[in-house]
Design a binder for these strands. Sequence first.
DNA 1: CGATCCATCCTCCGAAAGGACGACTCCACG
DNA 2: CGTGGAGTCGTCCTTTCGGAGGATGGATCG
Lengths: 208, 208
Amino acid sequence: MIRLVIADDHPIVRAGLLALFSLEPGIEVVAEAGTPDEAVAAAERENPDVVLIDLQFGAQAASTGAEATRRIRALDAAPYVLVLTNYDSDADILGAIEAGASGYLLKDAPPHELTAAVRAAAAGESALAPVIASRLLDRMRAPQASLSSREIEVLDLVAAGRSNTEVAADLFVSETTVKSHLAHIFTKLGVASRTAAVSVARQRGILR
Amino acid sequence: MIRLVIADDHPIVRAGLLALFSLEPGIEVVAEAGTPDEAVAAAERENPDVVLIDLQFGAQAASTGAEATRRIRALDAAPYVLVLTNYDSDADILGAIEAGASGYLLKDAPPHELTAAVRAAAAGESALAPVIASRLLDRMRAPQASLSSREIEVLDLVAAGRSNTEVAADLFVSETTVKSHLAHIFTKLGVASRTAAVSVARQRGILR
DNA sequence: CGATCCATCCTCCGAAAGGACGACTCCACG
DNA sequence: CGTGGAGTCGTCCTTTCGGAGGATGGATCG
């Protein structure tokens, strides 16, 4: 019997997963969680085989799904973690994998894909949704111009529509510094203007 | 007995809704739909009291939730339509209301809010999630600078990172015209730069 | 210890963006 | 049949942005 913990902030989704797995022989949902912290607590308490956790939790949540994944994988008898997400464009894909997730699933996946993934995870295998897998490969192929945290910070303000002067004021640096960061960002992203940079950053999931 | 049709492209969400309502006395789910078209067909065939339909369907769907709402409300024995959505920032709120939805619910709403809304809808009352209601009021208060279709077209290209000259070339107009459109957009949105315009347009759901 | 990346700061200059006028069509609406 | 809005175009002018180039200190890592 595979002992499963499901974690999602939407009661509806939790009910759906519960209904799905209750029909599934050999899989038992031993706990539900509505927040990342609850998920970690449940994983520690119930000592399940697999944890199925959403990546996006509501804004009021303390931590993220990726963070919870990391903490769950750091437990003594660490269960396998399957990550669930709405969007295949999510920037946290890599983060989740690094955090120790053994699978990555889309919420619009057909049910049998879900159950198959749970079984695969319980067996210690990794299971990626095909879309995700190919996207990961893409990302591997493309040298993946990753922005520094400071650069992301700058780009985030730019995406909010702030001018260079405003960004400079916000970050307590000179405007030349902002321009310098932006210049790096442009070359890394292969674009020539701030709006284009924001556009591709959104596309790649660097911004949301 | 309230006869209910549920429509959502995520099998998980459908299962969740189904599970939720199956526990609910006096409510019976008579059909499920995975696409807007299926939802319309089911509404016509089953002649339900209420249709619960998602606004966002996957990219491969032919039409939108709002469109389906309109068509369902145009049926002879038109059932009431409750619209379900992930985000309270959705631009289609007004569209859905105009299309004849009698309620607007968030997916992270607690289950009892859902069932209450279905009962209210079946009784012919309208039910809006509190968040949505206040947001609607906000929108009423703010004169709602709506952009013309041409302006949206321009802004969309700008959001993709194209320059004024490129936008002009794309739309077969002069650059002056593009700048003119942008100037109007800026005043309408109360901003001073293209990136800021894109930002608030996204926020208001004018762009996605 | 160098190598490397990052963040910070310059200057100079051309190109792009935006503001402020005005003006011409077309079409819908009363 | 006007009136007005939307879309189109223009000019002149100022500000901002972005490119090119270089320089400094700090952190990290083999």
